[in-house]
């Protein structure tokens, strides 16, 4: 932490707080956040029982916000992890094998880049139906290509190094060299994409649930914004507040990411 700059430290602190909020949600805001808990359309900072007010059905906004953190972070973390994993494996195979395999894998990567990630997620959800695992799959489908490209470029430059030649003379199998020797060394630059992947995943999940294609049994910030939109004139804060939560989360991810990549650049 100490070696990070101020911006990154602010971002990291916010992320830790958000994670705590997600983990402790059942204790911070007990009960079902989708249950009606009071008078409808209470303004924020009026009632002590509903600090941020209630929505048009009388559901507590703060409880929704706290529980929404869970969905957001869960989906974002796992889909970014899946995307990075798939991307780095594809990139390693592609860069290490070269030749025809490389051409085929790179064309597939390009095909995935050609289809807008959000539309791909939408199409996948329409086939599989919305749930947390399918959302994770759908979002990572459009999110792995950049990791594949970056890893491939890194593997190409590592492939000719002495330690790879040494591993060959030791009699290691090609795939063993690729995944045990080259991939760990190529992972640094790919990991710096993690922040962008997480941020993209958060925004896609929010947009999907805003359109009503998220998991219907969970409260998410996107659905809260969509719900609030129906009373936008009377109670704009119902849409604005969950959006601020989104912006803060994505911004802190970016701040941490920028700090980490700057640190890596200084070290190399």
């Amino acid at each position: 932490m100490k070696s990070l700059n101020l911006e990154a430290r602010i971002g990291a602190t916010l992320l830790v707080l958000l994670t705590l909020m997600a983990l402790l949600a059942p204790w911070i805001a007990p009960g079902d956040p989708l249950a009606i808990s009071g008078e409808a359309m209470l303004k924020p900072f009026v009632s002590e029982a509903h600090l941020l007010g209630t929505d048009r059905l009388g559901r507590d906004v703060l409880a929704g916000l706290v529980h929404g953190t869970r969905t957001t972070l869960l989906v974002a973390f796992f889909s970014a992890a899946t995307a990075l994993l798939v991307g780095s494996v594809v990139g390693t195979i592609s860069g290490f094998l070269g030749g025809f395999a490389d051409t085929v894998l790179m064309r597939i990567t390009e095909a995935f880049q050609t289809v807008p990630g959000f539309l791909l997620a939408l199409a996948t959800i329409s086939v599989t139906g919305p749930s947390i695992p399918t959302l994770i799959l759908a979002i990572s489908l459009g999110n792995w290509t950049q990791a594949a490209r970056v890893t491939r470029a890194e593997v190409l430059s590592l492939r000719e190094r002495d330690f790879v030649a040494a591993a060959r003379t030791l009699g290691m199998r090609p795939m063993e060299i690729a995944f045990r020797e080259i991939l760990p060394n190529a992972f640094g630059p790919t990991a710096s994409l993690a922040a962008i992947s997480v941020a993209t995943a958060i925004l896609i999940e929010a947009a999907l649930s805003f359109l009503g294609f998220g998991d219907p049994n969970r409260v998410t910030w996107g659905t809260m914004i969509a719900e609030g939109r129906t009373v936008l004139r009377a109670a704009p804060y119902l849409s604005i507040v969950p959006g601020i939560a989104l912006v803060v989360t994505v911004l802190s991810v970016h701040l941490v990411g920028r700090g980490l990549s700057r640190k890596e650049r200084l070290q190399s």
Binding site: A199, L203, A206, I225, L232, P236, L246, V248, V250
Partner: peptide, 9 residues
């Protein structure tokens, strides 16, 4: 960090 749809609203 601002989602387009929310900015629109």
């Amino acid at each position: 960090a601002v989602p387009g749809f929310w900015l629109g609203l």
